[in-house]
């Protein structure tokens, strides 16, 4: 058995509790014969127990009351919004009418150009909007008719209408000391790919803005 490739991989598998019986046998046989791997295995197991031996830390005194004191004022949910939630059919029907008049419907079907709500520092290539690695978008980001790839960060919600959020997976081979972090979005990610969802998205926004005005 090759120590570096096979034996060490089996050790990690063992430590993750994913070793089959045959594999375990294989590993045990190798360990009996190979001093170097034995040491390696011992060190790995010891590392874990050392890490686990760190005493658990607890939240400081008064943590809970601090959180409670800093919560925003009791949320009074607007009962219109609630009604709207409880009667999706009526709302959708009403909105459908509005949309027919408002022309949003045709906007969905006709307008196929890539648009993005914030342009600064973003790259648009082949229908893909890219937030480059060193860029942080502050605020919500809306992308229409294109995919989005976040290599940097978005400090807000992300909405993708008629497109996908592209996951970056080619990253995993980067070396251990590579400083590539996970793409990061602080808020919600919404993908809107159907006319109906699009309608919902619009309603939600319209209602939210209407009611936030009303609340002032």
């Amino acid at each position: 058995m090759n120590c570096k490739e096979e034996a060490i991989a089996l050790m990690h598998k063992y430590l993750d509790d994913h070793l089959t019986q045959t594999e375990e046998k294989k590993l045990r046989m190798h360990l009996q014969a190979c001093q170097e791997c034995q040491t390696h295995f011992h060190e790995l197991k010891r590392t874990i127990s050392l890490v686990k031996s760190s005493s658990p830390v607890s939240a400081p005194q008064g943590f809970t009351s601090n959180v409670m004191a800093n919560l925003p004022k009791q949320k009074k949910r607007n009962h219109y919004t609630k009604w709207f939630r409880n009667h999706p059919f009526f709302t959708a029907a009403a909105v459908f009418f509005l949309m027919m008049f408002g022309g949003i419907f045709s906007a969905w079907t006709e307008d196929q150009q890539v648009t993005v709500s914030k342009q600064e520092n973003l790259v648009i290539k082949n229908q893909v909007v890219i937030v480059p690695e060193d860029v942080t978008v502050n605020g919500d980001l809306v992308v229409r008719n294109g995919d989005l790839r976040i290599e940097g960060a978005v400090n807000g919600d992300v909405t993708i209408i008629n497109g996908d959020l592209l996951k970056q997976d080619s990253r995993e081979d980067s070396p251990l000391d590579g400083e590539k972090y996970m793409a990061y979005v602080s808020g919600e990610v919404n993908e809107v790919n159907q006319v109906f969802e699009w309608v919902w998205y619009h309603i939600k926004n319209t209602w939210e803005s209407v009611f936030s005005l009303a609340k002032e």
Binding site: P56, V57, S58, F63, T64, M68, L71, K75
Partner: peptide, 16 residues
């Protein structure tokens, strides 16, 4: 809102 207090005190150590 008060119901949140129990949630915080239950998870505070883990999150911290």
């Amino acid at each position: 809102q008060a119901a949140f207090e129990d949630v915080v005190s239950f998870y505070q150590n883990k999150v911290y």
